[in-house]
Design a protein around this nucleic acid. Sequence first.
DNA 1: CGGTATCCGTTCTGATACTG
DNA 2: CAGTATCAGAACGGATACCG
Lengths: 148, 148
Amino acid sequence: MGGMEERTLKSPSHCTGTEQDYDVRQWDTREGCEVRQILDRVADKWSLLAIAHLERQTLRFSELRRRIEGISQRMLTVTLRQLERDGLVTRTVHPVVPPRVEYTLTPLGATLHATIQALVDWTEDHQEEIAAARASYDSRQDDLAALS
Amino acid sequence: MGGMEERTLKSPSHCTGTEQDYDVRQWDTREGCEVRQILDRVADKWSLLAIAHLERQTLRFSELRRRIEGISQRMLTVTLRQLERDGLVTRTVHPVVPPRVEYTLTPLGATLHATIQALVDWTEDHQEEIAAARASYDSRQDDLAALS
DNA sequence: CGGTATCCGTTCTGATACTG
DNA sequence: CAGTATCAGAACGGATACCG
């Protein structure tokens, strides 16, 4: 999703500008819109998983890596750094050898967890409907293609 | 995010496989996991916006395009096709000239709207905290860099 | 109007190698 | 252990041109 090189904090507030007549207007695409930017981060695949796994427990880097199956070391590092920067995760380095680095949700991160869980729950609850819809759509497409 | 060329429906169910001892296990990264795949789609930037704008109203292609500022014609088409395939959006073609194509949320899509809105609301509610966290993190980084 | 097809630069991501 | 650095391939996404 969005890059991470922007450090433009031009319009920190609600992106009100050219008014439109819908309640979705606060979070559309305008340049410098904070909400959209944060949403991109928060709706990110790996971020979602990391936050979910950190619920109510502190985990080490390698523990997280094992739990989030399929994530590369690089992506886990990048994701955790972003979450740390956003104040959603705390990173604690214990000055021992070998190094021990622990990650925890901040209170802010904890509040996000519930919301994320709702999205995950929705997905679980409706996965069969979606799979069915896809199968149906695909077979219709196949039928159309067969007419050629 | 995820590509759209996979039509593998190998494990349509809950991704239970190599068991792990956490409640997040149902939606991790294993190959063929439906939940993760759907989540990627649903958490997509443009999908979110499209669904949000379609709440309680039918919109034409061009209307959607105007409302979702910054989306290209191609991305809108791609997004709407995905949502249609997933059974979240209905596409109705009126056989008139010039063509008139209308999009509506399906009942399934409507149930997703509430969840998405919760995520958006969270983002709006906490955007200042996040902006502050970022600023704080960045200045700390700058301080560190200054020591070189 | 509502697309589709194509080209192409940008971003993302995984693999690999190396380090304190 | 917990990274960082680098590189290459894949995916994303915009611009453009064309069509029913």
